[in-house]
């Protein structure tokens, strides 16, 4: 019943949401120094092909249509959360030009991945409860990171803002995202190739440039 309630709540939120950027979002896009509209729409389209292909490979071609439905819901949530995030950033920073953020490919891919993770977890939980061996269970986190070739560390960056921007998330979903965070913090962000190592290196370099030479702390 809890799983069904989560699905019901999600579809209720997203039934009224649009599959494309709202008027408000378009205004934010138009305010940018470099208008990101085309690249955002193109990215959503490109990632749709990738998502649907990987989904069908995982669950079987017979269930490919489910992948389309999940992606559609994910895109609605992505636009909805993006709008809410930009509104609070506008309030916080008193600026309307978010050109750098809105032209950042990693930001968008991470945000869309997070929206899809919420959708997949909402439905996946239901599937795994009714059928322990369900193929859908295999699509749980960090599956989405591999699909979009996304670094766990980058995905981590959107989670907290996502939770703040979407007040309708169920308690269960917040807990799920928190579990994803913990997994990233404890292991995924420390795998080879993670951007975290380069950031630590840069931070150390800045430290050694600005400070007097001091013995390195453990």
């Amino acid at each position: 019943r809890a799983a069904m309630n989560n699905i019901q709540q999600l579809t209720m939120i997203l039934n009224s949401a649009a599959d494309k950027p709202s008027e408000t979002l378009i205004k934010y896009f138009n305010n940018c120094t470099v208008n990101p509209t085309d690249s955002i729409l193109k990215r959503v389209e490109n990632l749709e092909h990738i998502f649907k292909k990987k989904f069908a490979e995982a669950v079987g071609q017979g269930c490919a249509e489910i992948g389309s439905q999940r992606y559609k819901l994910g895109v609605r949530l992505y636009y909805r959360v993006m709008e809410s995030m930009l509104k609070s950033e506008e309030e916080r920073l008193s600026v309307q030009n978010f050109s750098q953020l809105l032209n950042d490919n990693i930001f968008h891919t991470s945000l869309l991945a997070c929206a899809l993770e919420v959708v997949m977890a909402t439905y996946g939980r239901n599937a795994s409860q009714s059928d322990g061996a369900s193929a859908e269970t295999d699509l749980s986190f960090p599956w989405i990171l591999n699909v979009f070739d996304l670094k766990a560390f980058d995905f981590y960056k959107v989670i907290e803002s996502f939770i703040k921007a979407e007040p309708s998330l169920t308690r269960e979903m917040i807990k799920h995202l928190e579990r994803c965070e913990h997994r990233i913090m404890e292991s995924l962000a420390w795998q080879s190739g993670s951007p975290l190592f380069e950031l630590i290196k840069q931070s150390k370099e800045r430290e050694s440039q600005s400070d007097q030479p001091e013995p390195t702390a453990t």
Binding site: E89, L93, Q100, L101, K175
Partner: peptide
């Protein structure tokens, strides 16, 4: 939400995390 541990500091948001001005 009350159980969630927020890590961003006061006055910090998504813009800072993606190195935006």
């Amino acid at each position: 939400v009350q159980d969630y541990h927020f890590g961003l500091e006061e006055g910090e948001g998504i813009s800072e995390l993606f190195d935006c001005d």
